[in-house]
Nucleic acid binder design. Structure first.
Lengths: 213, 213
DNA sequence: TGTACATCAGTGAACGCGCGTTCACTGATGTAC
DNA sequence: TGTACATCAGTGAACGCGCGTTCACTGATGTAC
């Protein structure tokens, strides 16, 4: 293995160790030595990869941002599937939360708990998420002749619900994930219905109030 | 001042210092010495009041719980006022968040970030909050002949919205609080409307879709 | 009211520990010829 | 291909510091007579 490959491996181990450890007490409670040890190198070796813990923190935020964007893209690509768009999007979210639990724990946990820099970086990502959801809902609404007035509010409310209630997926055993997803879907539909974005003559897919879509 | 009064004063200072300091980096990142110093006593004096930091933490959770219950009671007592019930309840929430910012920062920040014990204690309080909101909505719905099927879901969604979006009050300058409250009220009404709990023939107070109530 | 003793909130020194950071180093990988 | 030198990821000792916790203590408040 080349020296560059080896270095990249170690860097990856540092990032993963920080993510994993931050799940229990939050990133701000971690120590450099602790992360280095968990990665199998000495504390001094850490400095070959990052200037300090803050720099590692920024990399973690970038990873969260990247994952969120992948999530949005995937949710969008499922819009035209035969399944309902809401159900498909929530399923995409749950998949990601389940596949990358450490990243989601960081996102959800440090949203208010971490340092100011951390917090504002995560907030910016969530705002971006809300904006993209707004765009999608608006495009869909125009197409279907639905009212668009409440869409920004609806998007904000939906993201609040999905992130807050969805956070429970991290603490629940696997066999209860489906039930949780179902609850989130129903709650999101309450918002969509309240904003007049559901149950219009033309619909993107066959759907009853709660069951199939 | 009696010895008991003096001791109580110091205890109070320790609690308030912990609350205040936990706002920046979260409670789990605080040190005993730091809290003692901010309270004007030596580190060893801390032990006259609490066995360790965890015991202080439990007291903080109790304070959060107490404040939440006061908040619920106040929101309930405003239900019959001439103002709309939603607007009144959100106003109560914003008042409390503004009056006890440190407690709300703790509640919102440690919901996912803190230790397991901390987290589950806060979760229990929020669940209680959801349950009481459900009861209130159900009583109201029965009285007005509204459907009650979606009430548990609506209550969970509403609390998610109020706590998530409401958390912004802690970062916003005072003159923007009213605008934020307005946004939350509108978002909550989307949920209520979606659940059929708004705009029925008989209403508890005069109200149009968004403006006055 | 005055005196003698008890209580106990808060003190300050001391401990061993993990922390972040520095430094000179080692030895495997990479490169030039 | 073989040799001689350069690079640099990771090491290990050392530093000063703040940590949680212990201990014997002090001196103001409280109590008994």
């Amino acid at each position: 293995m080349s020296r560059l490959e080896q270095k990249e491996r170690t860097r990856r181990r540092l990032i993963d160790a920080a993510l994993s450890l931050s799940g229990e007490r939050g990133f701000s409670a971690l120590s450099l030595r602790e992360i280095a040890k968990a990665s199998g190198i000495t504390a001094t070796g850490f400095y070959r990869h990052f200037r300090d813990l803050d720099e590692l923190g920024l990399v973690l935020v970038d990873e969260v941002a990247l994952t969120l964007r992948q999530l949005i893209r995937e949710a969008r690509s499922r819009f035209n599937a035969h399944d309902g768009r809401t159900k498909a999007s929530i399923a995409a979210f749950m998949d990601y939360a389940h596949r990358k639990p450490h990243l989601f724990r960081l996102l959800l946990g440090e949203r208010l708990g971490g340092s100011t820099a951390f917090r504002s970086a995560l907030h910016a990502e969530i705002d971006r998420f809300v904006a993209e959801l707004s765009e999608d809902l608006e495009a869909q609404a125009r197409e279907l002749g639905q009212p668009t007035d409440d869409i920004p509010l609806a998007a904000e409310a939906i993201v609040a619900i999905v992130f807050t209630v969805g956070a429970e997926v991290l603490e629940l055993p696997r066999h209860r994930h489906a039930g949780l997803a179902d609850r989130i879907v129903k709650e999101v539909r309450l918002v969509l219905k309240g904003a007049g974005l559901l149950d219009t003559p033309r619909s993107d897919s066959p759907r009853q109030p709660t069951a199939p879509g």
